[in-house]
């Protein structure tokens, strides 16, 4: 395998190294969460969007912020509130008297990285506007379509649903997000470091863009061409089939989800510096990818547990 590693190194020295630097930079801000950071970048390179769901104060926004900065390009932050309107996200057409025509003023969504903070605080109508734009990669308004810049990466954060004053995202729209991750409490040493070291806001302010939009596009394109062997494809199919036949689940994963699994696994393989996909890539990304797309039957536990169970029981070919 040495040959191919060398070949990969010769082929794209710049973007891959910068990617590593970007990940290292984010790890310097968010301590002890390298797995989540890897997943976040996987979502970026797979061309999907990321949902971070956790309690307030564990660093969701900081993570999103850090990723947005190091990814380079334009980035925008939208703080979702219950009086936020679709136009506040997408933009508005204003009447220009001199030109006697409407002029489109792009909203904050026209950026490479969009940070949608506390997305479940907005009304379903506003949420829909965001989710439509994420899916279509464009904004339609007044019979005009306005393409979004590329790469286009949405990082949404969300508080768990049992808090007051939120509008939970509809189940059918959750799969607009490629991955859903949560951060959890930091480990003891990391929490101590957090207390001792400089303020996160200072650190964020010190972050520089490492990647460029062109880098991200190039890396995405490279990831999409990585070698996937027959056994790995078998494994993906076996997992998807397991969700479709599992008694606790209301419905299984869709073919779109299977495609998403493949893309995410490829992105992770690229992050790991391999030029082929391992079952490990599929397995490590399966829970964040599948759990929010699956709904359990009443009294059948949580989809996270079912997903773990499926991973344990599906034989790796």
């Amino acid at each position: 395998m040495n040959d191919s590693a060398d070949r990969a190194g010769d082929h794209r020295p710049g973007p891959l190294q910068r990617l590593e630097q970007a990940i290292a930079a984010v790890n310097g801000v968010i301590l002890g969460k390298s797995r989540q950071i890897e997943l976040a970048f996987s979502a970026l390179l797979a061309g999907g969007h990321l949902l971070i769901e956790d309690l307030p104060g564990v660093g969701k926004t900081t993570l999103a912020h850090a990723i947005a900065i190091v990814t380079g390009g334009q980035w925008q932050r939208i703080q979702f509130t219950n009086d936020l309107l679709p136009a506040d996200i997408l933009g508005v057409s204003v009447w220009r008297r001199e030109a006697e025509s409407f002029e489109f003023r792009p909203g904050p969504i026209f950026a490479n990285v969009v940070l949608a903070d506390e997305v479940n605080r907005a009304t379903p109508r506003t949420q829909s506007a965001l989710l439509e734009a994420m899916a279509e990669q464009q904004v339609s308004m007044d019979a005009h379509t306005h393409g979004l810049p590329r790469p286009f990466f949405v990082i949404a954060t969300q508080n768990p649903l049992d808090l007051v004053g939120t509008y939970p995202l509809p189940d059918s729209q959750l799969d607009r997000f490629l991955l859903r991750i949560s951060l959890g409490y930091p480990a003891r040493e990391q929490e101590r470091a957090l207390l001792v070291e400089a303020d996160r806001r200072t650190l964020l302010a010190g972050l520089q863009p490492v990647l460029s939009p062109a880098d991200v596009l190039e890396l995405s394109a490279a990831a999409a061409t990585l070698h996937v062997s027959e056994p790995v494809l078998d494994y993906i199919q076996a997992l998807v089939e397991a969700t479709r036949t599992h008694a606790a689940l209301r419905a299984g994963l869709s073919p779109r989800a299977a495609l998403a699994m493949l893309a995410t696994a490829r992105a992770r393989a690229l992050l790991e510096g391999r030029d082929y996909v391992l079952p490990d890539d599929v397995k490590q990304t399966f829970a964040p990818l599948a759990a929010h797309r699956l709904q359990c039957n009443p009294n059948s536990g949580e989809s996270e547990h079912v997903v773990e169970q499926i991973l344990d029981e599906t034989r790796v070919p």
Binding site: S229, L278, D280
Partner: peptide
């Protein structure tokens, strides 16, 4: 690692 590379690699 060697097995994975041979089994799943090109």
């Amino acid at each position: 690692e060697k097995y994975s590379a041979l089994k799943y690699g090109p």
